[in-house]
Design a protein around this nucleic acid. Structure first.
Length: 665
DNA sequence: CTTACACGCTTTTTT
DNA sequence: AGCGTGTAAG
C-alpha cells in the first residue's frame, strides 16, 4: 500500500469552543470590546466601569480562540497590575498564563533592549539609572562645565533632570520645554542644551540608561533595524494597553511600531483620569489614537459598578466643572447610600484623631480594615496620621512616596553590585568611592577616569592608588571585596550581597546613628536578592519595579493580615475600597499651591480629586484642617479645597468636630 | 588643593 | 531628611 499524504488546506482552524459564557458575564459594551478580535480598538472606560474586567476577559477570549499566549503583549502601568490581571485570566480559563508577556513599557523595553540592543550599539550589560542617579550625573557634568557660578541662577539638578525628561517624553526640543514651562530659565537655554548633549554622550559611553532612555532607545531600535521591528511586531500579534490616558507621545509611538505589521491593538483608558502630565503623559493620546490607527473601533463603558449614587453624583459634579469637556457620563444602577461627608477639623491632629476614631467604629460595624483607605495628595500628608494610628495600634500599609530603594544605605550596597555587572558604571563608582575616608569628589573622579581608560574592567588603577596616599587602607579593602565578588566568581546575588554587607556594615555604623534601622532594611534587601539567580535581573527589577513597602510595612503585614491602606492618590489608581477618606482637602494643599499658577495644572489636580472620589464604593469622607500655617508661602490656609466648594452643596453632608476635652472644666 | 562638617532652606505626584 | 553653601582642618 502506498501512503498518500494529505496536505493541510488553507487556514481553517477548528471552531473554537469557549468555556466562558461571555454574554452572561459582560455588558454590551464590554462584550463588544472583548469579542472584537482583529484591528485597532479604543475603549473609553469611566471609573469603575469594568475596565480591568474587560481586559481580563479579552485575554481569556484570545487564548480560548486559539491564539498562542506568547503572542499576546499586555502593557500596564505597574507590573503588579499585569500580574494581577494574568492571575485572573488563569483563574477564569484554568490555563497557565505565564507565556503571556505582561509588564510596564519600561520593563518590556528593558527586555527587548537586552535581547536586541546590540543592533543599535547598546551592549546588554547596561545599567539602569533611577532618578537620583541621573541627577548625580547631571550634577557632575554641571560642575565640569563650570555652570554653578553663584552669580547666575542656574536651575537645580532635579529641575534640569525634569526639563530633559519632559523634552524626551513630549518629543519637544529642550528649548521649547524651557520656554513653555520654565520661562525663568530662558537665559540659560544654550547652556542647558550643551549640558543635555553632554548628558547623552556621558550615558552612552558608560553603558548607562535612564528611564527615558529605555523608551527612546527602544523606539530607535524599532526605527533603525527593520529586521528587529518585523520580528518584534510578528512576535506580539495582539497588543493590549491599560491606562492609555497616562501614556506619553513617545509611548504611543512605540505602540504604533510594535503593531506595525498587524494593527491588532486595544487600548483602554479614561480621559478624565489622566494624572501624569507632570511626566509627559497627555490624555490627548486617547483622542489621537484613531488618527494613529485609522479604522479604529471605539467602545464606551459608561455604567459604573462600583459606587453608590451619592458618591457618583459628587464625582460627576467635580468633573463636570472641568475646562475640557469629557467624552462620557457615568451612571449606576446601584442604589442609594450614605451621602459623602465633608469634615471640618480644627487642626491636623484633630483630623488624624477623627480618621482613627471613625476607622475603629467602622471596624466595629464589620468593615474589614483592608476595605478602608486613606488617600492624600502628597506622601508627607499622612505623617501625623501615621503616628496617631501607631498610637492606637491600627495596622496599616503605606503606598507611594519614598521608596526604600532610594535610601542612601540601599543605594550604597547596590552601587557595589552594579560595578560588578557594569565596570563602566561611573555613577556607582563615584558613589562607593566617596564612602571612603580620604576620598572626595576630586580623587574619585581621577580614579574613575583612570579605570575607564584601562579598558576591560581591570582594577589596576585602583590597586595602584591603594599603595599609598590618603585612603590607601580603605582602598585595599575595597579591592579585595571586588575581587571576591567580581569577574568569574560563581556567587549568587545573595552571596554577593552578603559579601558587600560584610565590607559595608562598618562604614554604615560609622556614618549613621540610626544604623540598626538601616541594617534591617539591608536584611530586607537580602531576602529580595535571595529570590534571584542572576545579578543583572535582580538589579534591573529593583530599579524598574521598586518594592514600595519598607521593612516596617512587611512586619506589619506579618503581624496582622488585615490592615488599613494609606496611599497617595497616584498610587491608588485602579483600586477601590468600601470606605475612603480623603484628607488634607484644603485649598493650598489640594490643589497644592505649587499647581495654582497654571490653569492646566489645576485641571490635572481636579482630575486627581475625581480619581480619589471614585475609589469609594460605599462611604466617602473628605476632611480638611482649618488654620494651617503654610511656611512655604507664609499664608494661613483655611478654605476647603475649591473642588469641594464649587460643587452643589447638597452633594455633601457637613460635620463639624467637637472636642470632648473642650467641655471639661 | 581637598576633604570634612555644620548650618539654613525647601519638600508633589512616579516608571 | 537631603541639598547646597560656607568655613575650618588636613
Amino acid at each position: 500500500m502506498k501512503p498518500y499524504v494529505l496536505k493541510s488546506g488553507p487556514d481553517r482552524p477548528a471552531e473554537p469552543t469557549f468555556s466562558l459564557k461571555y454574554e452572561d458575564e459582560l455588558n454590551a459594551g464590554q462584550l463588544a470590546a472583548v469579542t472584537a478580535v482583529d484591528g485597532p480598538i479604543l475603549v473609553i472606560a469611566g471609573a469603575g466601569s469594568g475596565k480591568t474586567r474587560t481586559l481580563v476577559y479579552r485575554v481569556a477570549r484570545l487564548i480560548e480562540s486559539g491564539i498562542p499566549p506568547e503572542s499576546i503583549l499586555l502593557l500596564t502601568f505597574t507590573r503588579k497590575a499585569s500580574e494581577e490581571m494574568l492571575r485572573r485570566v488563569g483563574a477564569l480559563i484554568g490555563l497557565r498564563t505565564d507565556r503571556v508577556t505582561g509588564g510596564t513599557f519600561h520593563s518590556v523595553a528593558n527586555m527587548l533592549l537586552r535581547r536586541y540592543g546590540r543592533a543599535i550599539g547598546l551592549e546588554p550589560g547596561f545599567t539602569i539609572l533611577d532618578r537620583g542617579d541621573s541627577e548625580d550625573v547631571i550634577n557632575l557634568l554641571r560642575t565640569q562645565q563650570g555652570l554653578n557660578d553663584k552669580a547666575r541662577r542656574f536651575p537645580r539638578k532635579n529641575t534640569i533632570n525634569e526639563i530633559f525628561s519632559k523634552s524626551v517624553n513630549k518629543l519637544l526640543p529642550v528649548e521649547d520645554v524651557v520656554l513653555g514651562e520654565f520661562p525663568q530659565f530662558t537665559d540659560e537655554i544654550e547652556d542647558l542644551q550643551k549640558l543635555c548633549r553632554a548628558f547623552e554622550s556621558y550615558k552612552r559611553s558608560r553603558l548607562l540608561v535612564d528611564y527615558d532612555d529605555l523608551l527612546v532607545r527602544l523606539r530607535e531600535l524599532l526605527d533603525t533595524d527593520e529586521g528587529v521591528r518585523q520580528r518584534v511586531s510578528e512576535a506580539y500579534r495582539y497588543v493590549l494597553v491599560d491606562e492609555y490616558q497616562d501614556t506619553n507621545r513617545l509611548q504611543a509611538e512605540i505602540v504604533r511600531r510594535i503593531a506595525a505589521t498587524h494593527d491588532n491593538v486595544m487600548v483602554v483608558g479614561d480621559d478624565s483620569q489622566s494624572i501624569y502630565a507632570f511626566r509627559g503623559a497627555t490624555f490627548r493620546n486617547i483622542m489621537d489614537f484613531p488618527k494613529l490607527f485609522p479604522g479604529t473601533r471605539i467602545f464606551k463603558l459608561e455604567e459604573n459598578y462600583r459606587s453608590t449614587q451619592p458618591i457618583l453624583t459628587l464625582a460627576n459634579e467635580v468633573i463636570n466643572l472641568a475646562a475640557e469637556k469629557y467624552s462620557k457620563t457615568l451612571f449606576t444602577r446601584k442604589g442609594e447610600g450614605p451621602s459623602p461627608v465633608l469634615v471640618k477639623a480644627g487642626d491636623e491632629n484633630t483630623q488624624s484623631r477623627f480618621v482613627a476614631q471613625r476607622i475603629l467604629e467602622l471596624r466595629e460595624e464589620g468593615v474589614p480594615l483592608e476595605e478602608i483607605a486613606v488617600l492624600f495628595r502628597s506622601s508627607f500628608h499622612s505623617f501625623d496620621l501615621e503616628i496617631e494610628l501607631t498610637r492606637r495600634n491600627i495596622p496599616f500599609v503605606k503606598r507611594g512616596g519614598f521608596k526604600f530603594i532610594e535610601t542612601a544605605h540601599v543605594k550604597d550596597i547596590l552601587a557595589h553590585l552594579r560595578v560588578v555587572e557594569n565596570p563602566k558604571d561611573a555613577v556607582s563608582w563615584n558613589r562607593l568611592l566617596m564612602l571612603l575616608d580620604g576620598v572626595g569628589p576630586r580623587k574619585s573622579q581621577t580614579l574613575i577616569e583612570a579605570m575607564l581608560a584601562e579598558d576591560g574592567g581591570g582594577l589596576a588603577a585602583l590597586k595602584a592608588a591603594a599603595e599609598k596616599g590618603a585612603g590607601a587602607q580603605a582602598l585595599r579593602d575595597l579591592v579585595r571585596l571586588l575581587e571576591d565578588i567580581g569577574g568569574g566568581s560563581s556567587m549568587t546575588p545573595a552571596e554577593q550581597m552578603n559579601a558587600v554587607c560584610g565590607y559595608y556594615l562598618p562604614l554604615l555604623k560609622q556614618q549613621y546613628d540610626d544604623y540598626p534601622k538601616r541594617t534591617k532594611d539591608l536584611e530586607h534587601l537580602y531576602t529580595i536578592a535571595a529570590r534571584y539567580g542572576k545579578l543583572d535581573s535582580f538589579l534591573a527589577d529593583l530599579t524598574l519595579e521598586p518594592p514600595d513597602t519598607s521593612l516596617f510595612d512587611v512586619e506589619a503585614a506579618d503581624r496582622d493580615a488585615e490592615r488599613l491602606v494609606l496611599s497617595t492618590i497616584h498610587s491608588a489608581k485602579g483600586l477601590e475600597w468600601h470606605t475612603v477618606f480623603i484628607i488634607w482637602a484644603l485649598d493650598g494643599k489640594f490643589p497644592s499651591l505649587y499647581s495654582m499658577t497654571a490653569d492646566e495644572d489645576i485641571e490635572e489636580e481636579r482630575r486627581l480629586f475625581y480619581v480619589a472620589v471614585t475609589r469609594a464604593k460605599q462611604n466617602l469622607y473628605v476632611s480638611y484642617p482649618v488654620n494651617i500655617f503654610d511656611r512655604a508661602s507664609g499664608m494661613v490656609l483655611s478654605k476647603p479645597s475649591r473642588f469641594i466648594e464649587e460643587v452643589r452643596s447638597d452633594c455633601l453632608d457637613t460635620w463639624s468636630l467637637i472636642d470632648e476635652d473642650d467641655f471639661r472644666d
